[in-house]
Design a protein around this nucleic acid. Structure first.
Lengths: 125, 125
DNA sequence: ATAGATGCAAAGAGTTTGCATAGGT
DNA sequence: ACCTATGCAAACTCTTTGCATCTAT
């Protein structure tokens, strides 16, 4: 069974507090304010463990960055800011996407990413 | 100015022949049939050069894989097969995606990726 | 002949893993 | 006391870069 460690709790709190998907480095920086000696390997191991438990999900972004967010029950997508690179949740989905696939292909899912500028970066380039 | 080398031509031909986005490794394998000594560094340098010229565009997929395809003038999206991992072009776009973004955010673009099984992998798991 | 392109190997960046130790239970 | 979780460092993967050589012009 899994243990309740300061590191694990700090990582979970960082994700809860952010309310948006965080990169491993963002998680590290946030959680280190609580547990200064925290190492990046623990962040990777912990988010993987939390993902296995179904508590968080990975958000893989074009460019190779993988962020992590607390698991939601509802279908949603993401927005990435070109200014600060932060990732935000986007509610809703255009739907009717399966019909776009080539004939003979079976669509099992989809991902949609919007990009542009968040409210903060829109005013502060 | 740029030179017309066997390597560069083999890489361009691989992209034309495939008719779909190729990963650096796929490009290497295809182009090596024409130029056996071809190295992966040349593939990376060449696709970057072709991208700078506007002849190819990068297709960045969740998971960190970056593929390259010949540049199209029309807006389109992609499908990735969970069986063979190959990437295909998808025509059309659901449109009206900007409205999904949070208030105060400006949307400059979007990417849509469908995933599932291609026609080949649907019958051959 | 000149200068850009290539192949190799080394260097980076991000992520994962091995191992001794710390620390939850 | 036991055994998982941690921190460090090494290993790994993918991509980029330095450099001597090759080759298109």
């Amino acid at each position: 069974m899994e243990r309740r460690t300061r590191q694990r709790e700090a990582i979970r709190r960082a994700l809860v507090a952010a309310g948006r998907p965080l990169s491993p480095q963002e998680i590290l920086a946030d959680a280190q304010r609580e547990v200064p000696g925290l190492g990046i390997a623990t962040v990777y191991r912990t988010v993987k463990s939390l993902a296995d438990d179904g508590e968080v999900t990975a958000v893989e972004l074009p460019g190779g960055l993988t962020c992590f967010e607390r698991r939601h029950q509802h279908h949603h997508h993401h927005f990435q800011c070109r200014g600060c690179q932060k990732v935000f949740e986007v509610h809703g989905c255009p739907g009717h996407l399966d019909r776009l696939a080539p004939a003979g292909f079976s669509v099992e899912g989809h991902e949609l990413l919007l990009f542009g500028r968040c409210a903060d970066c829109r005013t502060t380039p």
